[in-house]
């Protein structure tokens, strides 16, 4: 087996609080995510999943507490982390074509040979034939494919996905599950928020449920894992 071209990264959240005005979105969340783990976050609407992922992406600064990253090997210095992030919104420009969007972000990230990388990703997400179409002419599912391609452009060691199957048809969900399986098996750390059991949820090696901004369940075992996703124990 060939070693990964990147150092697997772990994340450590220490007593994270996030307040918006007087309302707590997250309250004293402490979690350690090991390098290469695939963690599924479940929880009702407003439970804090999105805020948690945005803090992990370093888009939102916590009101209190600390987020740190660590390498699998303690001797290695942790590089600057640039996570691949798929959010609720597509995070791509409607007025640009699929290819222009991906080229824009790959050039900003300094991806070597951006044209080749973009062509390969467009092929992978099944949008090669529509590469020159404006994103605003795409269906929601096609936009989501562009969003996923954008997040994977720089082959990130940490992948964060907020309900990544939104808008995808069954074939799209299968494609995403297969892609995530490959990424997980290559040692990437994956954090994703999902609703209920699915092909994608079954890839998780750990399930965490948030409620009212706090972690209320955290498991790696089969039966509890399912109950966290389906709320069967609530």
């Amino acid at each position: 087996m060939t070693p990964p071209a990147f150092a697997p990264i772990g994340l450590r959240f220490e007593d994270i609080d996030k307040r918006y005005g007087g309302i707590y979105a997250l309250r004293r969340v402490s979690l350690t995510i090991g390098p290469g783990e695939c963690v599924v976050f479940a929880g009702r609407n407003g439970s804090g999943k999105t805020t948690f992922l945005r803090i992990a992406a370093q888009l939102v600064r916590p009101s209190a507490g600390k987020l740190s990253f660590s390498c699998a090997s303690p001797n290695e210095e942790t590089p600057a982390i640039r996570a691949g992030f798929v959010a609720h919104a597509t995070m791509v420009y409607d007025e640009l074509t699929a290819e222009e969007n991906l080229l824009l972000f790959s050039r900003l990230q300094g991806t070597p040979k951006p044209e080749n990388r973009v062509a390969a990703l467009l092929e992978e997400v099944g949008l090669s034939e529509r590469r020159a179409s404006l994103v605003r002419t795409f269906s929601r599912g096609m936009r989501q494919r562009v969003a996923i391609a954008r997040a994977l452009l720089h082959e990130p060691a940490v992948i964060l996905m907020d309900e990544p199957a939104t808008g995808l048809d069954p074939q799209g969900v299968s494609w995403l599950a297969e892609t995530l399986r490959r990424l997980r098996d290559s040692g990437r750390t994956i954090l994703m928020s999902l609703h209920g059991e699915s092909e994608i949820a079954s890839l998780g090696t750990r399930a965490i449920r948030l409620d009212g901004g706090s972690v209320v369940a955290d498991t790696r075992t089969g039966a509890t894992f399912r109950s966290i996703l389906t709320f069967a124990d609530v």
Binding site: R82, A83, A89, T90, M91, V92, D94, L108
Partner: peptide, 13 residues
């Protein structure tokens, strides 16, 4: 509308 500012913030050095 598409949260593209976040995408830019994640991409630029």
């Amino acid at each position: 509308p598409n949260d593209t500012l976040s995408a830019l913030r994640l991409s630029v050095s």
